[in-house]
């Protein structure tokens, strides 16, 4: 379904096509074209925060409690720098988040324009990936790619930086790929090596003092992962502990639950970890 539209319209269309229902954001000069589109539709609800960091953490809470990517929309310069803490937070906890930032028009980039900052430079170390969009015809592909990268493999935050002239420009919109995992270079491995898995299960069957040490990766892998973890714990009868990030994957009331691991973890599992053969 190719259609001609402006960059700002593409942003809204791409959000809808990627299943987005809520956006957390804060307006400013460099994102006004996108805000103008937001108000003219009602399938996406915008939650107006009071500080961009709030938008970032709200998107994280949304993501963490649903398993879907959280979406934030902020303006250039201080809007973008106010997001840096939340992006880094999402990076360290592997939370899927798509952050759209406005940027000064392309002809002013690099001129110390009003509310200009090097958003892709500043956020490079605290995002899984980021893009500065220079041509409106690249925008749809980049937006779809942003959702794919944020949510696949080890999840994380991504930034799409869109100069204001690109938001006004008209180009051709294309929907997301039917199968985004056919990406040309990023294809995280989902299936484990069968020989290694067989060897692991055999090792487990021979273990005398085993312990499961689980983390946030179980939660990020989706509800099925937690269900399968419970099954494996029941089958083996092995005790299980978790990091702070992994709490809830195995129920606290479960028979094999040892309590939390770590600096303020409970006594039993931590002690055991040092003595396990």
């Amino acid at each position: 379904m190719q259609r001609e539209m402006t960059g700002a319209e593409m942003v809204l269309q791409a959000l809808k096509d990627n299943g987005v229902e809520h956006v957390f954001g804060y307006p400013g000069g460099a994102v006004l074209p996108i805000y103008d589109e937001l108000i003219q539709q009602d399938s996406i609800q915008h939650i107006l925060v009071r500080h961009e960091q709030g938008a970032g953490h709200a998107a994280e809470g949304y993501a963490r409690s649903t398993g879907k990517a959280g979406v934030a929309l902020v303006t250039s310069g201080p809007g973008a720098t106010n997001m840096v803490t939340a992006l880094t937070d999402a990076m360290l906890d592997s939370i899927p988040m798509v952050c759209i930032t406005g940027q000064v028009p392309t002809n002013l980039v690099g001129s110390d324009a009003f509310q200009e900052c090097d958003t892709v430079g500043i956020t490079r170390p605290c995002t899984k990936h980021n893009w500065l969009v220079k041509d409106v015809n690249d925008l749809p592909r980049i937006l779809h790619e942003a959702f794919y990268v944020a949510q696949s493999g080890r999840p994380g935050p991504v930034v799409v930086d869109i100069p204001k002239d690109v938001q006004f420009a008209t180009g051709t919109y294309d929907g997301p790929q039917a199968n985004p995992s056919n990406h040309k270079s990023y294809r995280p491995q989902l299936k484990g090596d069968m020989n290694a898995i067989r060897a692991a299960v055999e090792l487990m069957s021979k273990a005398k003092r085993p312990v499961f040490y689980t983390g946030g990766g179980v939660i990020n892998s989706g509800a099925a992962a937690s269900q399968l973890l419970r099954e494996l714990v029941d089958l083996t009868g092995f005790p299980i502990t978790s990091t702070l990030m992994g709490l809830g994957a195995y129920p606290a009331s479960g028979e094999q639950w040892l309590g939390m691991l770590g600096m303020h973890g409970t006594y039993e599992p931590t002690w055991r970890c040092t003595t396990v053969i």
Binding site: L190, G192, D193, I197, L229
Partner: peptide, 13 residues
């Protein structure tokens, strides 16, 4: 073992 937790756990079970 490199892989998605749910996929690997499924195989283990």
């Amino acid at each position: 073992i490199v892989g998605d937790v749910a996929h690997v756990l499924e195989d283990m079970v």
